[in-house]
Design a protein around this nucleic acid. Structure first.
Length: 327
DNA sequence: AAGGTCTTCAACCGCCTGTTA
DNA sequence: GTAACAGGCGGTTGAAGACCT
């Protein structure tokens, strides 16, 4: 129990590995295997602790390690698995051949987490961070208050402040609308999914909007610019039934029609909206394990509205072959 | 060109779990 | 049941390079 004493030993080298050390470690493992990591450094002639050797080997020197940029497919896989598994990097790594848990963890922390935050999603829950939007007017108000205090012509500032507060309140509502379309649209989406594949049944985590949102069509809202500014919205591989792009596109269409920006004058609920890329990708379908009665039952259970309540907005896992395995 | 800031990622730290005696 | 050990994991750090002013 407790910590392994191997790293407490003094006199052992720490820090970056030299090519000579790498060479010694590789040659030793190729010849003898790693055996006991604790005993390895002595046998290999390295002045390192066993833990350091194991880490160097598993994270860097192992011959089957895939290096270089993560593909969009890998990125999506990480997102899907993280939504289910959380920070279980080693578990996620087992589904990405050639990638180490450390690499995935770094990629998450430096890229994916930021992307999610930028999009207004909580990187831990994968759900919208609505508290940001609700606090926006407050933050703006504070910033304006500072300006008012510092500026002698405070009457002008007060007028400007009032105008901007109204604008921010509208923006706040608008953003809420993007993330929380009326449940009737989600229901339509659900029905479309059911028609294609009942096993894909899910219950999206959207909340019911209390009242219809006011139109911003007269405020020169550049809707396409907003879409373009959202990370991932351009990604071609995010084309799963419940993928983020689908969710975002649906939100955009819904919010657009809701605000009179798109489908102006139409009853947005009159024709069911169908995402353009609703079918599972052929590769995912081909890779999916055959549905046995047991797995089918399990999958259906896992996707039933009651058990899927509160699922991450991504929900892209439904098209991911391994989802069946996990579920 | 120089200094400051930001980003990336290899490596470390400390805790946890499984195994063995 | 307990202690010691070994391996594994996730969080964090810090050096180095990239980028910005």
């Amino acid at each position: 129990m407790g910590r392994s004493p191997c790293c407490d030993e003094s006199g052992l080298k720490k820090g970056p590995w030299t090519p000579e050390e790498d060479d010694k470690l590789i040659k030793h493992i190729q010849k003898h295997g790693h055996g006991s990591w604790r005993a390895l450094p002595k046998l290999a002639g390295l002045n390192r602790c066993g833990k350091s050797c194991r880490l160097r080997w598993t994270n860097y020197l192992r011959p089957d390690i895939k290096r270089g940029k993560f593909s969009q497919e890998e990125e999506q896989t990480i997102l899907n698995l993280h939504a289910i598994l959380g920070n279980k990097w080693s578990a996620i790594a087992t589904h990405l051949p050639g990638r180490t848990d450390n690499e995935i963890k770094n990629f998450w922390n430096t890229h994916l987490k930021k992307k999610l935050i930028q999009m207004g999603f909580d990187p831990m829950t994968h759900r919208p961070r609505t508290e940001i939007f609700s606090s926006l007017p407050h933050l703006i108000a504070l910033a304006n208050l500072k300006e008012v205090i510092e500026n002698p012509s405070w009457e002008d500032q007060a007028i400007r402040f009032q105008t901007e507060a109204v604008q921010m309140a509208r923006l706040n509502q608008y953003l809420q609308g993007l993330l929380q379309p009326p449940s009737s649209m989600a229901a339509n989406f659900q029905n479309n999914l059911n028609a294609i594949n009942p096993n894909m049944a899910l219950n999206t985590p959207y909340l019911e909007l209390p009242t219809p949102l006011p139109s911003l069509a007269n405020n020169n809202t550049n809707f396409q610019a907003i879409i373009d500014s959202i990370p991932f919205s351009h990604m071609p591989d995010l084309q799963a039934p419940c993928s983020l792009q689908t969710s975002l596109n649906r939100d955009m269409v819904q919010a657009g029609s809701h605000f009179g920006v798109l489908n102006q004058g139409e009853n947005s609920h009159s024709s069911p909206w169908l995402p353009p890329t609703i079918s599972p990708s052929p590769s995912a379908a081909a890779a999916a394990p055959p549905m046995t009665e047991t797995s089918n039952t399990n999958t259906a259970d896992a996707c039933s509205p009651s058990s899927y309540e509160g699922a991450p907005l991504w929900s892209g896992l439904l098209d991911y072959p391994l989802f069946h395995e996990i579920a």
